[in-house]
């Protein structure tokens, strides 16, 4: 049973009914792409493109989305798109952004605004592409970076990345008699991006499409660097059933594991309210095979950490001030 069915009221509150019918009809990410059944990342890309619209250039890190969308001689992309390598989506993006800027200035391309959007998976963003991301954001290029985080190297077969959650079993951090699986906590790149002084940072999830698309639109409107960290459910890597893709994203929010917020000019704001009483993390963990081995004690440990992180965020939501407010202090 879906969470929607468990709590129809919730659906009305969090999902603006009928709004889906109003969104961009054009599919910039065309059917025929080779993503797995129920791929949250492909869905997230599809939604992102709808929010971005036509005047966009995409740079893509090597990874699932690049592989499943660009089998020569075909492409799933209805937008200009370039893939160069694994670690450099952000630096390719900085080049695209600079190229578009100078060519427009010199009158060699039509005089209108085109947004550069660099995308990558969690491996291509938080690990191997981290330096390029940090450099591009610090330099202040006019570009949006979107990380589609499915919490492991899924393209190469579910190896652990810096974004893999604690206790998850992956093919390079397997659970076994002597191991809980992945022994590290997820690297929080959204927060690191906030500390780069970006005007706009947000977290998002395909399970909240309107929220995600609004954030993409907001980021698009900012003439400068912005970053969105989008949780993307991977049924293959998470060992969950394909139809529960959306539900798992919702559970991540409802358990406080992946809160949806935005940081606009330094000011934190929750964009999708979590339930007044957070769900137990076990509700999120149980349906996923990657956590199957965890004992109740271990789950309790995760619960504590999740609450701590959640409170840390809420503390910022409650006390952070925007740059303007800070200037006026």
């Amino acid at each position: 049973m879906s969470t929607a069915n468990l709590n129809p009221k919730k659906l009305f509150e969090n999902f603006e009914l009928y709004v889906p019918k109003l969104i961009e009809k054009m599919e910039y990410f065309s059917p025929g792409h080779r993503a797995c059944q129920g791929c949250g990342e492909a869905l997230a890309i599809r939604l992102m493109c709808k929010a971005l619209g036509k005047d966009t250039v995409i740079t893509n890190a090597t990874g699932c989305m690049e592989v499943i969308s660009s089998l020569y001689p075909t492409t799933a992309w209805n937008l200009p798109w370039i893939h160069v390598a694994f670690p450099n989506s952000a630096s390719v993006g900085s080049g695209v952004s600079a190229g578009l800027k100078v060519l427009r200035r010199k009158g060699r391309i039509p005089d209108r605004y085109v947004k550069t959007v660099s995308i990558g998976g969690d491996g291509g963003t938080v690990d191997i592409g981290f330096q390029a991301l940090s450099g591009a954001m610090e330099r202040g290029h006019d570009m949006l970076y979107v990380c589609f985080d499915n919490e492991a190297y899924m393209n190469t077969g579910i190896q652990r990345s810096g974004a893999t959650p604690f206790g998850s079993s992956t093919t390079t951090a397997p659970a076994g008699k002597a191991s809980i699986g992945n022994k590290t906590w997820k690297k929080n790149v959204a927060e690191i991006m906030v500390e780069h002084g970006l005007p706009y940072v947000a977290t998002a999830c395909h399970s909240y499409p309107i929220d995600f698309m609004n954030k993409v639109k907001k980021a698009r409107s900012i003439k400068g660097p912005s970053y969105i960290h989008c949780l993307a459910v991977c049924p293959t890597g998470w060992r969950s059933t394909s139809e529960t893709c959306i539900k798992l994203g919702r559970l991540a929010l409802e358990a406080g594991i992946f809160p949806l917020y935005e940081v606009e000019y330094g000011k934190y704001k929750i964009t999708v309210d979590p339930p007044e009483k957070l769900r137990p993390v076990a509700d999120y963990i149980k349906p996923q095979g990657r956590f199957r081995h965890l004992t109740p004690d271990q789950i309790r440990g995760i619960q504590e950490r999740v609450l701590m992180e959640y409170n840390k965020l809420m503390n910022k939501v409650n006390h952070s001030k925007s740059w303007d407010e800070l200037k006026a202090l």
């Binding site: 450099n88 390719v92 080049g95 600079a98 190229g99 100078v102 390029a132 330099r139």
Partner: peptide, 23 residues
Amino acid sequence: EYICVESEHSAISACCGASGTGA
């Protein structure tokens, strides 16, 4: 546009992106 990159890897990558736009 002079891009003061953070590494050579990014230098050549940014060149790729820029050249891709026709610069």
